[in-house]
Design a protein around this nucleic acid. Structure first.
Length: 507
RNA sequence: GGUUUCGUGGCCGAGUGGCUAGGCAGCGGUCUGCAAAACCGUCCACAGCGGUUCGACUCCGCUCGAAACCUCCA
């Protein structure tokens, strides 16, 4: 299987062939959460997007090191006093240690990401644990002459940097516009230029989170941790840097500048950005107050939710859109996703019960291949065509919606065979199972939730109940038969009479 | 105002210079004791106006509309 993976690089705004710097190794850094609130649907998007990338790279047998940070220090609160640290603010309100808050929400984040079947990254470094690296990096930027110190704070000199390099290359911004359009914030007079950003901020006396540095007690600037930690764990030049589109500017733009200034060259080969989740066409975000937490989704306890949605429904909902598109939240869309996923999983369960036919399956013309490359002489089988479509979709910038569409094609065939209107040979059946195992479970990372909450006890009971019902059906005792069916219905168990006996399903 | 992106059928969402997305919902049928499920068929489309082209939903321009970023945010 020849795999030519193309990745949309935000830097070039084009799809580029993925060629790792040091194969078979691949390094990926993704901006993780700021742990000062419960994870919401917006957090799920990048986690799932880059989980898909992680899983696919692993499938392609790259040796991947995936680093996703935990931000537990450093971000400013815009509408409060300058220099306040988000986590410190909340800590004072609740009268607990800042690190206690950070620990609590980091744990919550892990719990919900686990529920979404997001693989744990290789390393999850915390900003607070990398003060030395950050301070060293500030020192390097100062030494290189691209930063200046004022009153115990250190700022990046964007204007000077722009004389040699292109600040704005990632986001497409022009420095003059930045200078003329940046709002004036309190305390900005310390900066030489409005476009400059803090590398190190002096801590005010009341500031709880503070660390000693050559410039006095303070805390690191907004963009520093990612540069310091990606360099530490992935090296001065690595393959993929990911994050949400809202981080493009100024965060990632500034990361580029910091690395260029500190190291002498850029550090990222491919920049990837996932798009936002919207609610009523607006971004779902903490600051807008229109976010729904994952906990609320899983329990259904939110005014906007008509029902609870399972973790896999959320995952499937997100994967049904391409990662660079916005996804609009609605109950209708989630319910459609829930049904679609159920159909897919049910198809897989049916597949496991199918027996092969010794005969060749119905001949169907192979799908035409673009350019004719890779076509199989004598006609490619329709199952192989599904597999090929899945790979092509993944290789085309991780097009998960296309993968899902191909899997549905597989489901159609499975159901037709189960209906005895078609047959599959043993090799075809094997290949189909392999496709589902690989793409549905390994790569898309979906799992059969039903299998988890239904133990052997329930299974045995259902066998018993259905065999009794079957007997009454054989004697045409429809009253008893329907009574059982109706009673089960009330318990959310759906009875499905088929040609080969009766199946059942929860929900 | 600037930067970036987008506008696809009842809903969600792919894709392409000439040919099917897919899911959910609807309609008709097959199957079934009935129902459900499943399968088959079917309806509904590419914001508007120009241009390029033999041909554009797809390329170009304009208009209208939307979003993100420019301030912490995934």
């Amino acid at each position: 299987m020849q795999n030519q993976l193309f990745i949309h690089n935000t830097l070039s705004r084009k799809k580029e062939l993925f060629e790792p710097i040091n194969p078979p190794f691949a390094g990926m850094y993704v901006c993780g959460p700021t742990v000062y609130g419960d994870p919401h649907l917006g957090h799920a998007r990048p986690a799932i997007t880059f989980d898909l990338v992680f899983r696919y790279l692993l499938h392609l047998e790259y040796k991947v090191r995936y680093v996703r940070n935990i931000t537990d220090v450093g971000h400013l609160v815009a509408d409060l006093d300058e220099g306040e640290d988000k986590i410190a603010v909340k800590a004072r309100v609740e009268q607990v240690e800042p690190m206690e808050i950070a620990q609590y929400y980091a744990d919550r984040y892990f719990i919900f990401m686990d529920a979404l079947n997001v693989k744990r990254p290789s390393i999850e470094p915390r900003a607070s644990g990398h003060m030395i690296e950050q301070i060293v990096m500030v020192g390097k930027i100062l030494d290189a002459g691209y930063a200046y110190e004022v009153n115990g704070s250190v700022y990046f000199d964007v204007e000077k940097y722009s004389k040699s390099y292109d600040y704005g290359k990632l986001s497409g911004r022009v420095l003059e516009d930045l200078i003329s359009n940046t709002r004036s914030l309190e305390g900005q007079d310390e900066k030489r230029n409005a476009a400059d950003f803090a590398l190190w901020k002096k801590a005010q006396p009341e500031h709880i989170m503070r660390w000693p540095s050559p410039w006095g007690d303070g805390f690191p600037g907004w963009h520093l941790e990612c540069s310091a930690m990606s360099t530490k764990y992935l090296g001065e030049y690595f393959d993929i840097h990911g994050g949400g589109m809202d981080l493009l500017f100024p965060h990632h733009e500034s990361e580029i500048a910091q690395c260029q200034a500190a190291i002498g060259h850029e550090s990222v080969k491919y920049w990837m950005h996932n798009n936002m989740i919207t609610i009523n066409g607006q971004k779902m975000g903490k600051s807008l107050g229109n976010f729904i937490t994952l906990d609320e989704f899983f329990t259904g306890k939110h005014a906007s939710l008509q029902q609870a949605y399972s973790p896999m429904t959320i995952r499937f909902f997100i994967l049904q859109a391409h990662y660079r598109s916005t996804v609009d939240f609605s109950n209708e869309a989630l319910q459609a996703a829930e049904k679609g996923l159920k159909k897919l999983v049910a198809g897989y369960e049916t597949l496991m019960k199918l027996s092969p036919s010794p005969m060749a399956s119905n001949p169907s013309p192979p799908a035409p291949l673009p350019g004719g490359e890779g076509s199989v002489p004598g006609g490619e089988g329709r199952i192989a065509a599904i597999q090929r479509d899945c790979y092509n979709a993944m290789n085309d910038d991780f097009n998960s919606p296309m993968v899902i569409a191909s899997l549905f094609e597989g489901v159609r065939i499975i159901n037709t065979v189960a209906d005895k209107k078609d047959t599959l040979t043993a090799p075809e059946l094997e290949l189909l199972k392999n496709i589902f195992d690989t793409f549905l479970f390994d790569i898309l990372g979906l799992k059969n939730e039903k299998a988890n909450d239904q133990g052997e006890l329930l299974d045995g009971l259902m066998q018993l109940v259905l065999s009794i019902r079957q007997k009454s059906r054989e004697t045409k005792d429809w009253g008893t038969s329907d009574q059982i069916r109706d009673a089960l219905q009330k318990l959310q168990i759906v009875v499905k009479d088929g040609k080969d006996g009766t199946a059942w399903d929860v929900g």
